[in-house]
Design a binder for these strands. Structure first.
Lengths: 214, 214, 214, 214
DNA sequence: AATGAATGAGGGTTCATTCAT
DNA sequence: CATGAATGAACCCTCATTCAT
């Protein structure tokens, strides 16, 4: 006769999985997937090595489940861009989105690192699942926003939304990555605020002096 | 009894090192640094495993020398941007640079892959050495070009050259990376030409419809 | 507060032990003792792993108790050979015994397999306990029968009953083993009947043509 | 430039394989395949654990190669039975064969033990390869001898050679197995000589007193 | 008494590195 | 210098056993 009800067990089980996955994400990010050992993960999760195998079939299984159960909940929520009618409104909306993105990337640096370190070990489907959660995936949202703004006359008619939609996420992602992941530096909030504002202005107004004939 | 002169020996030695490093770069890129074995490298270099240790102290030593001896010569050459006086000239110059960058990134995908896969294994100095050769490093060149253009009245006076200078490299790098490294896809030359032209136009003219009041 | 009388409890306890041992015998036979896991046994017995340890001290303890509680009752019953006065009666009696043996071996292939697979794990006493129940152990019965038959003039006076008594069991055991255990094949009833009759005839009359001078 | 010629290397390689296989056969026989560890084998072969994997792909690979390279050379040589015309000649020939078999089985007890302990791990082809080398496999030779003897009038016309041909090998194998493998006892040479002689006599003359009417 | 999650020792296997030839 | 067999530390994973519930 089971001491716990089926429901209790399921809850406990799910919590344990999350506890282990969180530890795995942390360890994989710090040491790289290949270099991290199951013992590292076990210690980080405060369980014995064998316990991990009661919840996951293999080290690779841990890796595969990280995007679904760890990053997912955090990354998926990103407010849709509002419709805008004026340049000011556009600027405000994009700055808000830009700052949200910086926060998101900074908050999930760990996840990005896991992804990069694990690249050679990921099957194509797993790679795509990771990709879906990378900050660049927001490009689609910006693209839709641009399309609507083009119809309303806010954005240029001859804009290529697929390309332009990638411009801002790429900048934000690359800079953050460059600083945090590649060089291991931190950005102060004021630095990143300035950076976002300038990037958005450049994005909206272009680099050219308007008085110059095109 | 040396059969070769000292000079010959040095030449032979240097060639051997390059031969092994090239093989290592290839193998590390294909399998990831951690997954690649010394035997893989030895086979690719057509030498025995032991021979590698006559030229490099360890597997990590191979990794560290890759940027200096393999990528360096290839990556460093990128024509400086000319000074421009008109929007058309600016567009032409930037498109040329953009296409050169795409080519560079595509041609050195291998090097980028090595860098990404080896990230958790690189010391900070080694990481910085790799970074110096990443395509994003061209940002500085673009920044200088923007500064000069601002003085000459081609670019907006209120531009932040440090931010704007990163915009174009970030886009080009991200897109190429996303396609080639993360998803394993190729881009056709015509796709990338279109993409560069649109990216440059967006960069120069901004996203806003000019008739919209700022 | 015991809900069952002491007797009930003892009965229940004994039944549980048998249930678990039967499962263990089945699993050990199918997968081999070393390859079988306690989880396999638990599932086969429809109990939890921990329950097994309420009835047996260890995996090896299961192995040791199999002959005493599982095979014993089944194997021990084998009708004694009748006394005979004629060749025909001897042939009838031996054929009956031979067919009983084939049936016994076939019906206890599982037990034989457990024994063989566990050989390297059995202590000498355990090994002897298993041996006592192997079909070859009937040799003693046949030996006694031969001795009595020799006295009554049915069997040759110069027979070595210890050797001859082993001949028939050996044949029957080896052939059945070879087919069922080693090669995994089955024997049809008619095949085994023919085989027993021929083996008995060979046993009784020898291989030599009687007209050949000895 | 290789220090050793290709021929030398091949010889050395083959010797190493044999050295390791012999150790494996010894260890597998003593501890059982499943219980034996690679470290056990390595120690027995006086090499490091890793070395074994330079010659065999896996533990199972060792098991599979044992019959081909260890037992093979020893077991395959067993003199064919001569043609005989008299009962005395038959007896002499069969005693010689019987003693050869006892020697063979005794000398390859190790091999038999490996086979038995590894049964649950062997694929069907591997099982058959092992079987081919088991002493019982000589049954075919005896069968042919009986057929020829039947034609020449030495053996009874109504003999079933397939059954009778198995009788002697079965006896010899079973008894030796029972003593050596199952009980771990040794047989003295004189014991086994007596046993073989009696077994052959029983085989040839049958158990019945000749004066008894059939 | 029954359960099954937790444990961790132990085993097969890989691979960077060494070194005798 | 070149070679590649030998080495053994380290890792992933299994599973007998324990114990809190």
């Amino acid at each position: 006769m089971p001491r716990l009800t089926a429901h209790d067990r399921r809850t406990h089980n799910a919590e344990r999985r999350r506890q282990i996955l969180r530890a795995a994400a942390r360890v994989f990010a710090d040491r790289g997937y290949a270099t991290a050992t199951i013992e590292n993960v076990a210690r980080a999760a405060h369980v014995a090595e064998g316990t991990i195998y009661n919840y996951f079939r293999s080290k690779e299984d841990l890796l595969i489940h990280i995007p679904r159960h760890i990053a997912g909940p955090v990354l998926e929520q990103l407010a849709a861009l509002p419709e805008v009618d004026t340049a000011e409104a556009a600027e405000r909306a994009l700055i808000a989105m830009g700052e949200a993105m910086v926060e998101r990337v900074s908050g999930n640096i760990r996840f990005v690192k896991v992804f990069l370190s694990a690249l050679p070990h990921l099957s194509r489907p797993a790679r795509e699942e990771y990709m879906r959660l990378m900050p660049m995936a927001t490009a689609g949202m910006l693209e839709a926003h641009l399309r609507r703004g083009m119809e309303r006359g806010v954005y240029r008619r001859d804009l290529d939304p697929a390309v332009a939609g990638r411009a801002l996420p790429a900048m934000i992602f690359m800079i953050t990555l460059g600083q945090r992941v590649f060089l291991g530096r931190r950005m102060t909030p004021s630095m990143s605020r300035t950076f976002v504002r300038e990037a958005v202005r450049q994005f909206l107004h272009g680099a050219l002096d308007q008085r110059v004939p095109v």
